[in-house]
């Protein structure tokens, strides 16, 4: 009767070796290409032509860039807005637009600073019974290496009773200082930055960005795939934010809590609410 082995007495097997290469035919060693003297001369000529063309192309590009640089200039245009209007709309298509309520301003005015190689676009000012609309002329705005900065200044006393509408489109619109009756705006794929005061603030962005600071009676901030950033934001009555796939960072901790509350709706994005500590009843 066989007894079961307690230990395997067989010697250890060597590790498996990879299978040997198949014995196929070995490739023949490369042999130099034999060309006739005429063919060899032709190949050398072709290589020389290609090299010359490459150098010529590079030199042409440098020359064009240098010439364009020489043509770049800065130009400034100024235009008066109507002396009186009931609302102001600002568009930021292809330009950087800043809107300012100024205590020292005596009349509303727009100033365009253009930097580029072509001629500067005009300031587009339209006025009807709904109010005044200001932007940069042209359907596509200022593109390429050129840039345009449009500054709109409104007397502070006038701004305090004006509804302000912002349409950033693909550009950037900034409202800094002063106080406005009401601010509404859409960022599109651009950027809206507000650091001011208003009784009501209502901003939305598709893929753009909203930057918000200041003091507002109500604030309604919405973003689809864009982003909402706020700091030093004091909303006195009601603050609401809504994001789809975007992000919202609403910092309301610098002032008293909104008396009518805070609401945050988030689809698949993210929202961060920073609220004042209990007992905070004044800004600071």
């Amino acid at each position: 009767m066989p007894t079961p082995a307690l230990h395997d007495q067989r010697p250890p097997q060597p590790p498996a070796q990879p299978p040997a290469q198949s014995g196929g035919p070995r490739p023949a060693p490369a042999r130099p290409l034999n060309l006739s003297p005429g063919a060899r001369t032709g190949v050398r000529a072709a290589i020389a032509i290609v090299a010359a063309l490459a150098v010529l192309t590079a030199l042409t590009a440098v020359a064009f860039g240098f010439a364009a640089g020489l043509r770049t200039h800065q130009e400034t245009k100024t235009a008066d807005l109507p002396a009186d209007f009931s609302a102001l709309t600002v568009t930021g298509l292809g330009a950087n637009v800043s809107v300012r309520a100024d205590d020292g301003a005596r009349a509303p005015v727009a100033r365009l600073t253009y930097t580029g190689s072509g001629s500067a676009p005009g300031i587009d000012i339209r006025s009807d019974k709904r109010g005044a609309t200001v932007g940069v002329e042209g359907e596509r705005g200022v593109i390429g290496s050129s840039s345009a900065q449009l500054e709109i200044t409104v007397p502070a006393a006038m701004a305090a009773s004006l509804p302000l509408s912002l349409d950033a489109k693909s550009g950037a619109v900034e409202v800094d200082g002063g106080a406005w009756k009401r601010i509404a705006g859409t960022a599109g794929s651009g950027v809206i930055t507000v650091h001011t005061k208003a009784d009501a603030l209502e901003l939305s962005a598709s893929s753009g960005i909203l930057n918000v600071k200041g003091e507002y009676g109500t604030a309604d901030l919405r973003a689809k795939s864009g982003a909402i950033h706020s700091e030093s934001l004091w909303v006195k009555r009601r603050a609401s934010t809504q994001v789809s796939v975007g992000t919202a960072n609403l910092d309301l901790s610098s002032g008293a809590p909104p008396q009518q509350g805070i609401s945050a709706t988030t689809d698949s994005g993210s929202t961060k609410l920073i609220v004042p500590r209990p007992g905070k009843d004044a800004k600071g």
Binding site: G261, I262, S263, A264, T266, D267, G269, T271, L273
Partner: peptide, 13 residues
């Protein structure tokens, strides 16, 4: 002060 949060499939803090 009321705080209303409606979070669907995202993140809210």
């Amino acid at each position: 002060i009321p705080i209303d949060i409606d979070n669907r499939s995202g993140e809210t803090s």
